[in-house]
């Protein structure tokens, strides 16, 4: 389980994340939603120790993320942030192989190679695996990075806007693949999503943030309600149930 206690991030006098305490359930997909500047990505980064917190602490399976050695955590928790920009030319396979670094320390074994192949297949990157990343489109690159994180084979996977730059087809297939991984392998995903409907359709648990605080959390039907969403987004959002999913229509 991931447990955040009184986590705060402050830049000067601005509070970006304000005293957040959370327990993220084990297994399934948890999505964090909320308007720009709500502190979603910042919270995710602090949970994954990529960003130091101003105060508070985070425990992953009882391990404090600040004091636990990085290589121990790297086998339990993986994070992918937005804007992954590289200066070196790497092929897709080379990038994905890096996902095995916590296990192999740079000397991949046959077993590691199997993991790599599986992750590449899982993200549908077989045809691209020998291509350099800088020759791919943004969406293809995004999939390659997700494949790397999956290849890390951790119990917890944190993805910051994994659908960024993906077209509809690939967005759907990404969410389906995450769903499968959660259901069959028992992994826990924590996502930051901007698309309410993807969040609603694929998540077991939703967390709505606003102004650095957790405003609401619960299952889709608890969050996907006009009054809740109005409080989060300051916007009138109609909700309809279509084929059992709660769908928000907010285009007009």
């Amino acid at each position: 389980m991931i447990e955040a206690k009184n986590v705060t991030k402050r830049y000067g006098t601005t509070l970006v994340v304000d005293d957040v305490s959370l327990r993220l359930p084990v297994g399934g997909i948890t999505s964090i939603i909320g308007p720009n500047g709500a502190g979603k990505s910042t919270l995710l980064s602090m949970i994954s120790r990529v960003l130091p917190m101003s105060s508070g602490n985070v425990l992953v399976d009882g391990l404090d993320v600040v004091t636990t050695p990085g290589d121990v955590l790297a086998k339990r928790l993986a994070i992918l942030r937005q804007d992954n920009h590289l200066t070196s030319r790497l092929t897709v396979r080379e990038l994905v192989t890096f996902g095995r670094y916590p296990h192999s320390k740079g000397r991949p074994t046959v077993k590691d190679q199997e993991h790599v192949e599986r992750a590449i297949q899982h993200m549908g990157l077989e045809a691209l695996s020998a291509r350099f990343l800088d020759e791919l489109s943004g969406g293809q690159r995004q999939r390659a990075f997700v494949a790397m994180v999956l290849c890390q084979d951790t119990d917890y996977v944190l993805l910051d806007e994994p659908l960024n730059g993906l077209d509809l087809k690939h967005a759907v297939s990404m969410m389906k693949q995450l769903r499968t991984a959660a259901d069959t392998l028992g992994k826990s995903f924590v996502l930051v999503l901007h698309d309410l409907n993807f969040a609603s359709c694929y998540s077991d648990h939703l967390i709505a943030m606003r102004d650095g605080k957790v405003a609401f959390q619960g299952r889709s039907e608890d969050i996907m309600r006009p009054d809740v969403l109005r409080a989060v987004y300051d916007l009138e959002i109609a909700i309809q149930q279509i084929n059992g999913d709660w769908i928000a229509t907010h285009y007009r």
Binding site: V50, A78, V149
Partner: peptide, 22 residues
């Protein structure tokens, strides 16, 4: 530390994610 240097190429955050004591 040659292999650790390789991981740094991926940038700070990815390196931390992969367990490098950045």
């Amino acid at each position: 530390m040659l292999r650790t240097f390789d991981v740094l190429v991926l940038g700070r955050e990815t390196a931390i994610n992969l367990g490098v004591d950045y």
